[in-house]
Simulated assay, not measured.
Amino acid sequence: MDWTIVSFLTADALQNGTIYALLGLALVLVFAVTRVILVPLGEFLVFAPLTYVWFLPSEVSGLNLQGQIPGTAWLAAAMLTWWAVLDRTNLRRVGLLLLGALGVLGLAWWGAQGVPMWLGWLLAILVVLPIGPASYRLFFEPAKNASVLTYLIIAVGLHFAFMGLGLVFFGPEQFRLPPILSGQTTLGLVPVNNQAFLVYGFALLAMVGLYLFFTRSIFGKALRACAVNRYGARLLGISPSQAGYVSFAIATLIACVSGMLLAPLISPAYFQGFLLGLKGFVAGILGGLVSYPLAVVGALLVGAMESWASFQASAYKDAIVFALLLPILLWRSLQSQEIGEED
């Protein structure tokens, strides 16, 4: 292995690790506030760019989709309407939710009529974004005070449901999306796609933004209070339910923007979200699902291991990455104290 190969593998590890870091940050955020391991996060990542395909001009996408509303818009509107039915005693919230459902369909219809590409980019994110907090209200909040295992089972079921719907909405093929920044920049011996710099920039912005949000804003401090002690936060007038909505919304936003920036580099398809989300989960586990800096370090380690394995043993690269979980889980099991089943 010479210096040229090392340079290419390092660049690949940095790009992959950055994506896993974004997903790891979102997973840690949701788990800290709600104790939910958000397995469907990878589906949110691919839903946004796949929705964007419906808003692209036919000469760019190569498909004649003008006037067709993407399935994700109908899904978001249906989930918001279901949320309104569950909260029917709160007339103000019902009105806002129904207005939001109509707004999602209106934005999707507007985008499907043909809009500038930058506007379609934003509309795709806005269409997918409500699915995150609606998922918390419809599937996780009814199981209040459930165990982490119960939440995990719900999340896995939701992942398979979303992945199946993705196949129905978008079909099995991959789509090639136009980049925001075209061309390449050579750094040393490695040509780096200019689109990758946007991914790096957003990752840095997300890390700094989350730090400032949790340390400087009153809403961030409220989420931290729910993460530390939900019952104590409730006594101080902080709603754990509202904190759950906010955490799911932030995580979904991070996933959607990450997917939109990453899409020109990977040609997204409905099935790609699972592996990306699973490797982000590995990064979060390496950080103990509690530490944002450790999650980032874990993501870079996952990216490095995947890059090395793809060169040395490409057939086993995913198995090698997931094997990183074994020593961490073993160490955590040895550190934990055995308690009775009732406790």
Rank of each mutant, 00 (worst) to 15 (best):
V190Y: 09
V321Q: 11
F44M: 12
R230Q: 14
L14G: 06
G220S: 12
A249C: 14
L86N: 06
G171C: 11
A143S: 12
Q174Y: 02
L14D: 07
V192S: 14
L149F: 12
N16A: 15
D318M: 04
L149K: 06
M163N: 07
I153S: 12
N16V: 06
P178T: 01
G201A: 15
R234Y: 10
S267I: 02
A263F: 06
D12A: 15
F219P: 00
E59I: 02
L301S: 15
F8R: 01
L294P: 02
R234S: 15
L167E: 14
P142T: 06
L235A: 14
G164E: 12
A263G: 14
F169A: 12
I266P: 03
V60Y: 01
P57F: 04
A13P: 09
F55Y: 02
L119F: 08
V85P: 01
G166E: 12
I180M: 09
Y292W: 05
V6I: 12
W74C: 04
S291H: 05
G259T: 02
L65N: 06
A309E: 04
A155T: 05
A203Y: 08
G132M: 11
A309P: 02
T34A: 09
I285N: 08
Q242M: 09
A309L: 08
S7E: 12
V168F: 11
P40I: 04
G284V: 03
T185I: 05
L23F: 05
L165K: 01
L25K: 02
F202A: 11
D2T: 02
L223M: 13
L97I: 00
A21S: 13
S7L: 08
A243S: 15
L181S: 07
L91Q: 04
I154F: 13
Q335M: 09
E59F: 08
L91G: 03
V104A: 15
P327E: 10
Q312P: 00
F160L: 14
L149D: 11
S147F: 12
I250G: 14
L167F: 11
Y316T: 03
S291T: 02
F248Y: 11
L301P: 04
A315G: 13
G220P: 06
G132L: 09
L325D: 10
D2V: 03
M79W: 00
F170P: 04
L22P: 07
